[in-house]
Computed example of a mutant assay.
Amino acid sequence: MTLSENEKKRLRNRYGSWAVVTGASSGIGRELAKQLASAGFGLVLVARREAVLAEVASELQQTYQTEVRLVLADLAGPAGVAALVKATESLGVGLLVASAGFGTSGQLVDADLEDEVDMLRVNCEALLRLTHEFGRRFAGQGRGGLILLSSMVAFQGVPFAAHYAATKAYVQTLAEGLSRELKPAGVDVLAAAPGPVRSGFGSRANMRMDMALEPEQVGVPILKALGRQTTVLPGWLTKLLVYSLQLVPRSIKVRIMEQVMGGMTQHQRVATVGL
């Protein structure tokens, strides 16, 4: 999927010339960076893996002739966020795509607590710090956009991914509230809540993903929803999964998700990225 020329023009006119994309080395973050490059945005790409991030930057520069700057940072700590803030002080950034994050699955009581705390820091604390910084910056300039990566698991408890789902519930409710707070200042906030997306984490994490969307199927719908919706469920599979449970009582949703996640993980403790 590609953005139309009218959509590219809308994004540039509304959000300016520079975008920051965290988690840009793979998956949805990489796809959104590609789409924004095609729209003519200069990009600040943020991730931990230098070699992979440099490869992404080279591809975007060669394909779209856009300027790309790299920030190598671990967003699990305040230092990583501070490095990103400093690197963008002199740029006319008008759009933040906060897609950095990771997840775990299995029983929480069997987890490594430090892994869970790191996930909380990346998925929630770093997101809060970035949203606070760029939200203030955008409000001050009278325009801007924040895309926060939620998930379809944000709408109910999910056994065998209980903590991960809780971090995404935080993202979802933060985006919903901020959307109303920042609207008078000309800042658009979007919660993007995809379902399973194929980005390589399934095989690495020993998860069975019989049905999953490709990143290319969700990037364009997310960008088209920015400034028009508060929450987007990108991709047909996401809509099917969420809408099919819409009228089901919350307690039953939890039981259904227990069966789904239990089958995917076989109750083993594994690391995942970005469901």
Rank of each mutant, 00 (worst) to 15 (best):
V71G: 10
V71R: 11
V71L: 06
L72Y: 15
D74E: 12
D74C: 10
A76W: 11
G77N: 10
P78D: 09
A79G: 03
A79N: 09
V81N: 08
V81F: 12
A82L: 14
A82I: 04
A83S: 13
A83W: 04
L84M: 02
L84P: 00
L84D: 02
V85W: 08
V85C: 11
V85M: 08
K86T: 13
A87N: 00
A87Y: 00
A87F: 00
A87I: 00
T88H: 01
T88Q: 03
T88S: 04
T88V: 01
E89W: 10
S90M: 09
V93Y: 12
G94V: 02
L95P: 00
L95T: 00
L96K: 03
L96Q: 04
L96M: 11
V97P: 00
V97I: 15
V97K: 05
A98M: 12
S99C: 15
S99Y: 14
S99I: 10
A100N: 11
A100E: 13
G101I: 01
G101Q: 01
G101M: 10
G103H: 10
T104K: 11
T104A: 10
G106V: 01
G106M: 02
G106L: 02
Q107T: 09
Q107C: 05
V109I: 08
V109Q: 14
V109H: 15
V109S: 13
A111L: 11
A111K: 14
L113A: 15
L113E: 14
L113W: 15
E114H: 14
D115C: 05
E116W: 12
V117I: 15
D118L: 14
D118N: 10
M119Y: 06
M119I: 06
L120D: 07
L120P: 05
L120S: 12
L120W: 15
L120Y: 14
R121D: 12
R121G: 08
V122T: 05
V122Y: 08
V122F: 09
V122E: 07
N123T: 03
N123V: 04
N123R: 04
C124S: 05
C124N: 07
A126Q: 07
L127S: 04
L128V: 07
L128E: 05
L128D: 03
L128A: 13
R129M: 13
R129D: 08
R129Y: 09
L130G: 03
L130N: 05
T131K: 04
T131E: 03
T131I: 09
T131C: 09
T131G: 05
H132L: 13
H132N: 08
H132P: 04
H132M: 06
E133L: 07
E133T: 12
E133N: 10
F134K: 06
F134E: 06
G135R: 10
R136I: 06
R136D: 10
R137F: 03
R137T: 04
F138K: 09
A139F: 01
A139K: 01
A139H: 00
G140Q: 11
G140K: 03
Q141T: 12
Q141L: 14
R143M: 09
R143E: 01
G144K: 02
G144S: 05
G145L: 03
G145I: 01
G145P: 00
G145K: 01
L146M: 05
L146R: 06
L146E: 01
I147A: 09
L148I: 02
L148D: 00
L149M: 15
L149H: 01
L149T: 09
L149S: 02
L149D: 02
S150Q: 09
S150W: 14
S150V: 10
S150K: 05
S151F: 10
S151W: 07
M152L: 11
